[in-house]
Design a protein around this nucleic acid. Sequence first.
RNA 1: GCCCCCAUUGUCUAGUGGUUAGGAUAGAGGGCUGUGGUCCCUUUGAUGCGGGUUCGAUUCCCGCUGGGGGCCCCA
Length: 441
Amino acid sequence: MNKFSTQPLRGFSDFYPEEMRVDKWILGKIREVVEGYGYEEWNGPTLESIDIFAAKSSEELVTEQAFIVEKVKGEKLILRPELTPSLARMVAAKIKELELPLRWYVFPNCFRYERPQRGRRREFIQVNVDILSHDGLYADLEIFNIIVDIMKSFGVTGKQFQIRWNNRRFLDELLLMVAKVPEGLKNQVYKMIDKRDKMEPAEYEKWVRDTLRDDAAADRVLQIGSFHDINVLPFDNLPHEFFEYPGVKEVQQLTEMIKKAGLKPYCTFSPEIVRGLDYYTGTVYEVFDTGTENRRALFGGGRYDNLIDLFSDVQLPGTGFGLGIYVLELFLTTYNKIPPEVKLPDRSHGVYIAPLDASCLLLAIKVAQLLRAQGKQALVGYDCRKLGRQIETASKRGFPYVIIIGKKEVDAQSVTLKNLQNGEQQTVPIAEMGKILVSKT
RNA sequence: GCCCCCAUUGUCUAGUGGUUAGGAUAGAGGGCUGUGGUCCCUUUGAUGCGGGUUCGAUUCCCGCUGGGGGCCCCA
């Protein structure tokens, strides 16, 4: 008879204990950092109405890349592809009682019907960290600080990653007032700038010139991405009041703040960073591997001015980032930053109890319970294999101690405690077992 | 949705149009009937699925499934 395939669905993963330990380790590090900044964990439902995604996001997201659940005909539910609409909904519902600024994080599993490739699955865990408040630049700076602290907690340095940041307001001013790009072509030019780094320079130049049909404007658009300092711009026609533009001032101020906060080794101002989302309005950023192994952005985010406008007339700006932990894992693996012991079960407080035959099992179980009551981890070798094998197993699995229980121990109501590191062993009454273990581990 | 590459025991892999598909490692048992990590012996276990060519296919061809890489997209 044909058996079912043991493979998971395309783009989905099985998580065996080893993978779970790696994920938990990564999330634990991130949690430690964001909790240190006072962020609170939240969560939304896994299923949402498709409407809020259709309204907020592109047509393609909803029609092509959504996992749709249609239990009742006509009622379209979507397995969440991201959490921002849920965040907006939940914040809007309690906008009057929530205290600003709101510092929230969540580690949701999200779903997108895409072609799986390096760092991309159809179900993935995407860390979201958001701060919702009215004072913009300090919130942006805090997010940069968090990103840097997260990366540092994994032991990577500014040599291995960079936050490349830009500002949408600034980019608008640059395109419309300096490059003189017609308003109608703005979004197309955004798209081109976004693609710049992936294309051959000649091909890119041709694309820009063909699209703009204005050599002067094209010349200036082609300069975007060639400079990394707002104070040294390669344009000869800057308007007199250029440095009074709000976007330009924001970039200048944030540059200054980054320097003073000591984040300069980790941040690069990069005017070609656009991000696809329509709702970004201020500072945007993407985190990159500086090496060649991971060419895509590791993760990114940005500032949006109208998070909750679908649900409320109240205006609430915010900024935050989304980080797929599978991509981060590949990055960390590239730089050898996942310690091998992360993949092994933690037996540092473990005791392996080795009964010699079935008549010893009841005492073994009782001893295990006593140990657990003291906060130890205790495993009973129910199969009662021969002692050599049991010790071998315990040793290979990393247990520091074995407790041997045979006929002698049952008769005397004692245990034989063996230290696997140095081979020492002693037989003690059960009542004293805890004391000895506590003093040793 | 498109393009390229890939698929052999749990894992890593060798090999072949023809008779028992080989090794390493992991697992199980024993050497050692109450003492581990080394060693020795024995043993379990594989050609992803479906179709075609052929006397015969694990091998060649097609499709499917899954994986890797890229395009599109990246909310």
